[in-house]
Design a protein around this nucleic acid. Structure first.
Length: 270
DNA sequence: ACAATATCCTGCGAGC
DNA sequence: TGCTCGCAGGATATTG
């Protein structure tokens, strides 16, 4: 599922490929992904030029001409595919939206589970929406990071986009393993040292994953339909029953909230 | 005010 | 072999 490293990779690719292009047509077979009337969406989008593409948390925002912006969230299984992507991979075959561009090429949105969200609104309204989303670990220093966490189980808090954005289930597991902190530990019970470790681990893991172009254990693909390689070097996520790469203990899995957490019971004591 | 739970969706792997 | 069933999960809505 796309988290910060995957979304950032996509945004960088999109900036190289579709920045400055104008939408000439749009097609969809699953119109519920669009949050407003299809006819209105289509008529508002066509003719708009892509002036800027950026990321806020896990959201991708296209600033368009005419004071409009398109906000997209890929949720679990969404990914963008551009022009000549890898069609041999079945994961790239769940295409529900196709944006036709003025260079004759197509930007498509593939989404197996159809959870993705596409919103087209005035830029000021989109900006209001984005204010709800907290900063990612690269945008703040340690003091701000600590201030934003406050209470709750650390894994859940790390995944709360209002507090800190960009981190989901995969990287929260990896970050907490790196920082040697149990996922169920309460924020208020964490030492200064542990909080600092978590903050530093957040940046380290996300940076490493970005360099690997993300994690593609299940569904994530880049705009060419290619996989990222962080899955090959991950330590704990979906490694239940395997040995901890640091101490050799068997990795455990536990439901925290509705999410599965993977951790080493020896390195990450409760 | 906050936290726990249900909801959306569909391919896949496990189990019979 | 082929079926059924439950799981995966981000964010939001709903309930406690």
């Amino acid at each position: 599922m796309p988290e910060l490293p995957e979304v950032q990779t996509i945004v960088e690719d999109l900036n190289k490929k579709v920045l400055g292009r104008t939408f000439v047509d749009v097609w969809a077979d699953e119109k519920k992904i669009i949050k407003k009337s299809w006819d209105v969406f289509k008529s508002e989008l066509i003719g708009k030029k892509i002036e800027k593409i950026f990321r806020k948390g896990k959201n991708i925002i296209f600033n368009l001409s005419g004071g409009y912006s398109m906000l997209t969230h890929l949720k679990m299984t969404g990914h963008y595919l551009y022009d000549n992507y890898d069609k041999a991979d079945p994961m790239n075959s769940f295409i529900h939206i196709k944006f036709s561009l003025d260079n004759g090429k197509v930007l498509a949105l593939s989404d197996l589970r159809k959870f993705a969200k596409v919103e087209l609104k005035e830029t000021s309204k989109i900006e209001e929406e984005l204010e709800e989303i907290g900063p990612d670990p690269f945008e703040i220093g340690f003091e701000e990071f600590r201030k934003r966490l406050r209470t709750g189980k650390i894994k859940q808090v790390l995944m709360d986009q209002k507090k800190i954005s960009g981190i989901g289930n995969i990287y929260s597991d990896e970050i907490l393993w790196e920082a040697k902190v149990h996922p169920e530990k309460k924020v208020q019970n964490l030492s200064e040292k542990e909080l600092k470790e978590i903050f530093e681990a957040s940046k380290k893991i996300l940076k490493t994953a970005l360099a690997a172009r993300g994690t593609s254990i299940s569904d994530y693909r880049d705009t060419e339909g290619k996989k990222g390689s962080y899955g090959d070097i991950r330590k704990v996520y979906r490694k239940t029953g395997k040995e901890c790469p640091r101490c050799g203990e068997i990795i455990e899995e536990k439901k925290i909230g509705q999410r599965s957490a993977h951790f080493c019971p020896l390195c990450q004591k409760p």
